[in-house]
Protein backbone atom coordinates (compact mmCIF):
# COMPACT_ATOMS: atom_id res chain seq x y z
CA UNK A 1 0.00 0.00 0.00
CA UNK A 2 2.87 2.28 0.70
CA UNK A 3 4.17 2.26 -2.81
CA UNK A 4 0.66 2.55 -4.21
CA UNK A 5 -0.07 5.79 -2.43
CA UNK A 6 3.44 7.02 -2.92
CA UNK A 7 3.90 7.87 0.73
CA UNK A 8 7.59 8.22 1.35
CA UNK A 9 9.10 6.06 3.99
CA UNK A 10 9.42 2.81 2.16
CA UNK A 11 12.94 2.69 3.36
CA UNK A 12 14.94 3.01 0.19
CA UNK A 13 18.28 4.74 0.22
CA UNK A 14 19.32 5.77 -3.27
CA UNK A 15 15.96 5.07 -4.76
CA UNK A 16 15.60 4.59 -8.48
CA UNK A 17 12.61 5.90 -10.36
CA UNK A 18 11.31 2.44 -11.16
CA UNK A 19 8.48 1.46 -8.81
CA UNK A 20 8.86 -2.34 -8.77
CA UNK A 21 12.52 -2.11 -7.84
CA UNK A 22 11.71 0.29 -5.08
CA UNK A 23 9.30 -2.16 -3.60
CA UNK A 24 11.82 -4.97 -3.58
CA UNK A 25 14.50 -2.90 -1.95
CA UNK A 26 11.99 -1.71 0.59
CA UNK A 27 11.61 -5.15 2.06
CA UNK A 28 14.66 -5.54 4.35
CA UNK A 29 14.09 -2.25 6.14
CA UNK A 30 10.45 -3.13 6.62
CA UNK A 31 11.36 -6.57 7.89
CA UNK A 32 13.80 -5.09 10.33
CA UNK A 33 11.21 -2.71 11.71
CA UNK A 34 8.54 -5.35 11.95
CA UNK A 35 11.03 -7.76 13.48
CA UNK A 36 11.81 -5.29 16.22
CA UNK A 37 8.12 -4.70 16.87
CA UNK A 38 7.38 -8.41 16.99
CA UNK A 39 10.33 -9.08 19.30
CA UNK A 40 9.07 -6.37 21.60
CA UNK A 41 5.58 -7.84 21.63
CA UNK A 42 6.86 -11.38 22.25
CA UNK A 43 8.67 -10.17 25.32
CA UNK A 44 5.66 -8.19 26.43
CA UNK A 45 3.55 -11.27 26.02
CA UNK A 46 6.07 -13.24 28.06
CA UNK A 47 6.03 -10.68 30.84
CA UNK A 48 2.25 -10.55 31.10
CA UNK A 49 1.76 -14.21 30.28
CA UNK A 50 4.14 -15.58 32.85
CA UNK A 51 2.30 -13.71 35.58
CA UNK A 52 -1.01 -15.00 34.31
CA UNK A 53 0.15 -18.61 33.99
CA UNK A 54 1.84 -18.54 37.37
CA UNK A 55 -1.27 -17.24 39.07
CA UNK A 56 -3.19 -20.30 37.93
CA UNK A 57 -0.32 -22.73 38.51
CA UNK A 58 -0.48 -25.24 41.32
CA UNK A 59 3.27 -25.40 41.56
CA UNK A 60 5.82 -24.07 39.10
CA UNK A 61 9.50 -24.71 39.41
CA UNK A 62 11.99 -25.57 36.70
CA UNK A 63 9.57 -26.39 33.88
CA UNK A 64 7.97 -24.72 30.87
CA UNK A 65 4.54 -24.81 32.45
CA UNK A 66 3.23 -25.38 35.95
CA UNK A 67 2.42 -28.88 37.13
CA UNK A 68 -1.28 -28.29 37.35
CA UNK A 69 -3.79 -25.51 37.34
CA UNK A 70 -5.99 -24.12 40.07
CA UNK A 71 -7.91 -20.98 40.84
CA UNK A 72 -7.33 -21.17 44.55
CA UNK A 73 -4.64 -18.48 44.60
CA UNK A 74 -7.26 -15.96 43.65
CA UNK A 75 -9.44 -16.62 46.66
CA UNK A 76 -6.29 -16.75 48.77
CA UNK A 77 -5.19 -13.36 47.46
CA UNK A 78 -8.66 -11.88 47.84
CA UNK A 79 -8.79 -12.79 51.54
CA UNK A 80 -5.14 -12.33 52.44
CA UNK A 81 -4.84 -8.91 50.95
CA UNK A 82 -8.43 -7.72 51.63
CA UNK A 83 -8.67 -6.91 47.98
CA UNK A 84 -12.32 -5.89 48.11
CA UNK A 85 -11.46 -2.98 50.35
CA UNK A 86 -8.36 -2.13 48.31
CA UNK A 87 -10.26 -2.06 45.02
CA UNK A 88 -12.94 0.10 46.56
CA UNK A 89 -10.32 2.59 47.72
CA UNK A 90 -8.68 2.51 44.31
CA UNK A 91 -11.94 3.35 42.59
CA UNK A 92 -12.81 6.08 45.07
CA UNK A 93 -9.42 7.72 44.72
CA UNK A 94 -9.40 7.50 40.94
CA UNK A 95 -12.88 8.84 40.39
CA UNK A 96 -12.33 11.72 42.78
CA UNK A 97 -9.06 12.57 41.10
CA UNK A 98 -10.61 12.42 37.63
CA UNK A 99 -13.55 14.61 38.59
CA UNK A 100 -11.51 17.20 40.43
CA UNK A 101 -8.76 17.42 37.88
CA UNK A 102 -11.26 17.95 35.06
CA UNK A 103 -13.06 20.58 37.09
CA UNK A 104 -9.84 22.43 37.74
CA UNK A 105 -8.00 21.70 34.54
CA UNK A 106 -10.51 22.25 31.74
CA UNK A 107 -11.32 25.91 32.52
CA UNK A 108 -7.62 26.63 32.83
CA UNK A 109 -6.91 24.86 29.56
CA UNK A 110 -9.62 26.95 27.93
CA UNK A 111 -8.05 30.19 29.05
CA UNK A 112 -4.57 29.04 28.06
CA UNK A 113 -5.77 27.93 24.64
CA UNK A 114 -7.84 30.95 23.81
CA UNK A 115 -6.38 33.96 25.50
CA UNK A 116 -3.15 35.80 25.61
CA UNK A 117 -2.47 37.70 28.77
CA UNK A 118 0.55 38.94 30.62
CA UNK A 119 2.26 36.10 32.43
CA UNK A 120 0.80 33.39 30.24
CA UNK A 121 4.14 31.77 29.59
CA UNK A 122 4.95 31.72 33.29
CA UNK A 123 1.57 30.18 34.06
CA UNK A 124 2.11 27.55 31.42
CA UNK A 125 5.52 26.71 32.79
CA UNK A 126 4.23 26.35 36.33
CA UNK A 127 1.48 24.04 35.13
CA UNK A 128 4.04 22.04 33.23
CA UNK A 129 6.48 21.62 36.10
CA UNK A 130 4.67 18.85 38.01
CA UNK A 131 4.79 16.72 34.87
CA UNK A 132 8.43 17.45 34.26
CA UNK A 133 9.43 16.58 37.80
CA UNK A 134 9.91 13.05 39.04
CA UNK A 135 7.04 12.23 41.42
CA UNK A 136 9.47 11.30 44.17
CA UNK A 137 11.04 14.76 44.05
CA UNK A 138 7.90 16.65 44.87
CA UNK A 139 6.21 13.64 46.45
CA UNK A 140 8.45 13.64 49.49
CA UNK A 141 7.99 17.34 50.35
CA UNK A 142 4.32 17.05 49.46
CA UNK A 143 3.87 14.06 51.73
CA UNK A 144 5.68 15.94 54.48
CA UNK A 145 3.30 18.88 54.12
CA UNK A 146 0.27 16.61 53.96
CA UNK A 147 1.41 14.83 57.12
CA UNK A 148 1.89 18.20 58.78
CA UNK A 149 -1.74 19.09 58.11
CA UNK A 150 -2.89 15.61 59.05
CA UNK A 151 -4.14 14.83 55.56
CA UNK A 152 -1.72 12.09 54.63
CA UNK A 153 -2.55 8.56 55.56
CA UNK A 154 -6.15 9.14 54.56
CA UNK A 155 -8.10 9.08 51.35
CA UNK A 156 -8.05 12.88 51.09
CA UNK A 157 -4.27 12.98 51.20
CA UNK A 158 -3.97 10.36 48.48
CA UNK A 159 -6.47 12.25 46.32
CA UNK A 160 -4.69 15.57 46.82
CA UNK A 161 -1.31 14.07 46.04
CA UNK A 162 -2.62 12.42 42.88
CA UNK A 163 -4.11 15.69 41.70
CA UNK A 164 -0.67 17.19 41.39
CA UNK A 165 0.28 15.42 38.16
CA UNK A 166 -3.30 14.96 36.98
CA UNK A 167 -4.40 18.59 36.73
CA UNK A 168 -1.39 19.55 34.58
CA UNK A 169 -2.04 16.49 32.52
CA UNK A 170 -5.61 17.56 31.84
CA UNK A 171 -4.41 21.06 31.00
CA UNK A 172 -1.76 19.70 28.70
CA UNK A 173 -4.09 17.40 26.80
CA UNK A 174 -7.01 19.79 26.67
CA UNK A 175 -5.14 22.91 25.56
CA UNK A 176 -4.27 21.64 22.07
CA UNK A 177 -7.69 20.07 21.85
CA UNK A 178 -9.36 23.39 22.53
CA UNK A 179 -6.97 25.21 20.25
CA UNK A 180 -8.06 23.13 17.30
CA UNK A 181 -11.68 24.14 17.80
CA UNK A 182 -12.22 27.22 15.68
CA UNK A 183 -12.75 30.18 18.02
CA UNK A 184 -15.13 31.59 15.44
CA UNK A 185 -17.55 28.84 16.36
CA UNK A 186 -17.78 30.43 19.78
CA UNK A 187 -18.18 33.84 18.20
CA UNK A 188 -20.89 32.42 15.98
CA UNK A 189 -22.72 31.07 19.01
CA UNK A 190 -22.59 34.44 20.69
CA UNK A 191 -23.77 36.18 17.54
CA UNK A 192 -26.70 33.79 17.57
CA UNK A 193 -27.60 35.19 20.95
CA UNK A 194 -26.02 32.58 23.20
CA UNK A 195 -24.68 34.01 26.43
CA UNK A 196 -21.42 32.79 27.89
CA UNK A 197 -23.20 30.05 29.79
CA UNK A 198 -25.18 28.70 26.85
CA UNK A 199 -22.12 29.01 24.67
CA UNK A 200 -20.16 26.84 27.07
CA UNK A 201 -22.94 24.36 27.70
CA UNK A 202 -24.46 23.94 24.26
CA UNK A 203 -21.62 24.57 21.87
CA UNK A 204 -18.31 24.18 23.60
CA UNK A 205 -19.14 21.32 25.94
CA UNK A 206 -20.32 18.91 23.22
CA UNK A 207 -17.28 19.77 21.16
CA UNK A 208 -14.98 19.32 24.14
CA UNK A 209 -16.58 16.09 25.25
CA UNK A 210 -14.31 13.77 23.28
CA UNK A 211 -11.27 15.56 24.59
CA UNK A 212 -12.54 15.57 28.15
CA UNK A 213 -13.40 11.90 27.91
CA UNK A 214 -9.95 11.17 26.60
CA UNK A 215 -8.18 13.07 29.30
CA UNK A 216 -10.52 11.71 31.97
CA UNK A 217 -9.72 8.18 30.96
CA UNK A 218 -6.07 8.97 30.72
CA UNK A 219 -6.07 10.44 34.20
CA UNK A 220 -8.03 7.46 35.45
CA UNK A 221 -5.53 5.03 34.02
CA UNK A 222 -2.62 7.03 35.37
CA UNK A 223 -4.12 7.35 38.81
CA UNK A 224 -4.91 3.66 39.12
CA UNK A 225 -1.36 2.95 37.99
CA UNK A 226 0.27 5.78 39.95
CA UNK A 227 2.60 4.18 42.41
CA UNK A 228 4.98 6.74 43.89
CA UNK A 229 2.61 9.44 45.13
CA UNK A 230 0.10 7.02 46.55
CA UNK A 231 2.88 5.02 48.11
CA UNK A 232 4.23 8.12 49.86
CA UNK A 233 0.90 9.40 51.15
CA UNK A 234 -1.27 6.33 51.74
CA UNK A 235 -2.00 4.90 55.14
CA UNK A 236 -3.01 1.29 55.77
CA UNK A 237 -6.66 2.05 54.90
CA UNK A 238 -6.00 4.15 51.86
CA UNK A 239 -3.77 1.89 49.80
CA UNK A 240 -4.60 1.53 46.16
CA UNK A 241 -4.20 -1.77 44.37
CA UNK A 242 -0.81 -1.02 42.92
CA UNK A 243 0.62 -0.05 46.30
CA UNK A 244 -0.82 -3.14 47.93
CA UNK A 245 0.78 -5.15 45.14
CA UNK A 246 4.14 -3.52 45.78
CA UNK A 247 3.97 -4.28 49.49
CA UNK A 248 3.09 -7.89 48.90
CA UNK A 249 5.90 -8.21 46.37
CA UNK A 250 8.57 -6.65 48.54
CA UNK A 251 7.47 -8.94 51.35
CA UNK A 252 8.06 -11.94 49.08
CA UNK A 253 8.61 -15.16 50.88
CA UNK A 254 5.90 -14.45 53.42
CA UNK A 255 3.14 -15.00 50.90
CA UNK A 256 3.09 -17.61 48.22
CA UNK A 257 4.47 -16.26 44.96
CA UNK A 258 1.34 -17.39 43.18
CA UNK A 259 -1.05 -15.40 45.28
CA UNK A 260 1.00 -12.29 44.57
CA UNK A 261 0.72 -13.21 40.92
CA UNK A 262 -3.01 -13.62 41.32
CA UNK A 263 -3.22 -10.14 42.75
CA UNK A 264 -1.12 -8.85 39.89
CA UNK A 265 -3.53 -10.45 37.46
CA UNK A 266 -6.47 -8.81 39.20
CA UNK A 267 -4.68 -5.50 38.88
CA UNK A 268 -3.90 -6.20 35.23
CA UNK A 269 -7.45 -7.10 34.37
CA UNK A 270 -8.69 -3.97 36.09
CA UNK A 271 -6.33 -1.91 33.97
CA UNK A 272 -7.32 -3.76 30.82
CA UNK A 273 -10.99 -3.14 31.50
CA UNK A 274 -10.20 0.54 31.83
CA UNK A 275 -8.20 0.39 28.65
CA UNK A 276 -10.98 -1.28 26.72
CA UNK A 277 -13.37 1.39 27.94
CA UNK A 278 -10.84 4.05 27.02
CA UNK A 279 -10.35 2.71 23.53
CA UNK A 280 -14.06 2.79 22.84
CA UNK A 281 -13.83 6.55 22.97
CA UNK A 282 -10.36 7.44 21.85
CA UNK A 283 -7.81 6.46 19.32
CA UNK A 284 -4.85 5.01 21.20
CA UNK A 285 -2.52 7.59 19.73
CA UNK A 286 -4.86 10.34 20.76
CA UNK A 287 -4.34 9.21 24.31
CA UNK A 288 -0.88 10.64 24.18
CA UNK A 289 -1.21 13.74 22.06
CA UNK A 290 -3.24 15.62 19.51
CA UNK A 291 -3.20 13.66 16.32
CA UNK A 292 -4.54 14.34 12.91
CA UNK A 293 -5.16 11.24 10.86
CA UNK A 294 -4.18 12.35 7.42
CA UNK A 295 -6.56 11.44 4.64
CA UNK A 296 -5.34 9.14 1.93
CA UNK A 297 -4.66 11.04 -1.27
Amino acid sequence: MVSVTGIPGTGVPGVGPARPRRRLVARPAAWLVWGAVIFFFLNLLGVVGSVLVSSFGRQWFDTWLPEGFTAKWYSDAWHQFTLGQVILVTLEVSLLVVGLSLLIGVPAAYVLARRSFPGKRAAYLVFLLPILMPPITYGIPLATVLYKFGLAGHLSGVVLANLVPSVPFVILTMTPFIEQIDPRIESAARMCGAGLRSMFLRVLAPLLLPGMLASAILVLVRTVGMFELTFLTAGPDSQTLVVALYYSMSAAGIRAQQSVDAMAVIYTSMMLVLLVIALRYVNPTQLVARVKEEPEP
Binding site: D182, R184, A189, M191, V203, L207
Partner: peptide, 20 residues
Amino acid sequence: LPPERRGFGMVFQNYALFPH
Protein backbone atom coordinates in the same frame (compact mmCIF):
# COMPACT_ATOMS: atom_id res chain seq x y z
CA LEU B 1 -23.24 45.21 25.23
CA PRO B 2 -21.90 41.67 24.85
CA PRO B 3 -22.29 40.26 21.34
CA GLU B 4 -25.25 38.07 22.22
CA ARG B 5 -27.29 41.06 23.38
CA ARG B 6 -26.77 43.23 20.34
CA GLY B 7 -29.13 41.20 18.21
CA PHE B 8 -26.88 41.16 15.16
CA GLY B 9 -26.34 38.20 12.88
CA MET B 10 -22.98 37.25 11.51
CA VAL B 11 -21.64 35.11 8.68
CA PHE B 12 -18.05 34.04 9.15
CA GLN B 13 -15.31 33.59 6.63
CA ASN B 14 -14.93 29.88 7.29
CA TYR B 15 -18.64 29.59 8.10
CA ALA B 16 -18.02 28.56 11.75
CA LEU B 17 -20.86 26.08 11.69
CA PHE B 18 -21.33 23.97 14.80
CA PRO B 19 -19.82 20.72 13.61
CA HIS B 20 -21.79 18.57 16.02
